[in-house]
Amino acid sequence: MTTALWRRTLLSIGMIALALIIGVPLYYIVINTFKTQADMVSSPLGLPETWSFANWSSALGDMSIYQAFGNTLYVTVLAVLAQLLVGAMAAYAMIIARNRTTRILGSLLLVGFIIPPQSTMIPLYRTLVGFELVDSLNGLVIMYMGGAIFCFFLIQGYMRTLPYEVIEAARIDGAGTNQIFWRIVLPLIKPILVTVGVFQTMWVWNDFLLPTVFLSSPQKETIVLQVYSAVSEFTTDWPAFMTITVIALIPMVIFFVFTQRHIVSGLLAGSVKG
């Protein structure tokens, strides 16, 4: 018992120390939001000489940040839910009907994420202009649907590890494809859905490339575009840049802390009961 306790203490200390080292850049970003540009120049890593909240009050005092926040939330929620749904549906169909055609189709879909985004940007933009979806949040959501391929790949990999007997049993009980998907498969793959969902949320929330090209009205800006308003041609107002970065990060951190326990949910217990 005591050795186990010792081991646990050692593990805790080791892991916390390691994580703190990993987190140094986080500290750097956060601490500099409380500095003036001058203070940051003279000591980038030290504690602020005097704690300045000017960056925060000017960032939060600008009403456009709330609008941007709402826009980002809208795009992220819709895009991620849609990506997960499309990806999970495809993965399910692929797993359930494994034959030559679906296998080829599966590898074909993977082409979707070996394409560098820079190379499809202009053709896509022209297409969206045709559908009047440029400078529209819904157009942006559609663009992000490309992430569904990524979801598909991860979810499919995870589904392979599932016990088939559960699905089979449901089938024998007379459940249809639809029912099995919603009632049995989705709950079973919750850990991977959460993992992929968290990751896609991070991507969509923080993405700069697509909004900067596809949005042009200030009232449709996402929060990351606000971050870049501190960048000018020759120099950057880094304290302002970092403050808005942190404001954009806070919801993500909260989101991760709340969702991560779902990554570690009792999967098997759930499936056996079902």
């Binding site: 202009i122 933009y125 022209r126 900067t212 090209v213 042009s216």
Partner: peptide, 20 residues
């Protein structure tokens, strides 16, 4: 007005819009 930070992002945004 809309804003795009210089230089690379601005050039890309403008290029995409001119072309379309």
């Amino acid at each position: 007005a809309s804003y795009s930070p210089p230089v690379a992002e601005y050039i890309q945004t403008l290029q995409t819009r001119v072309l379309s």
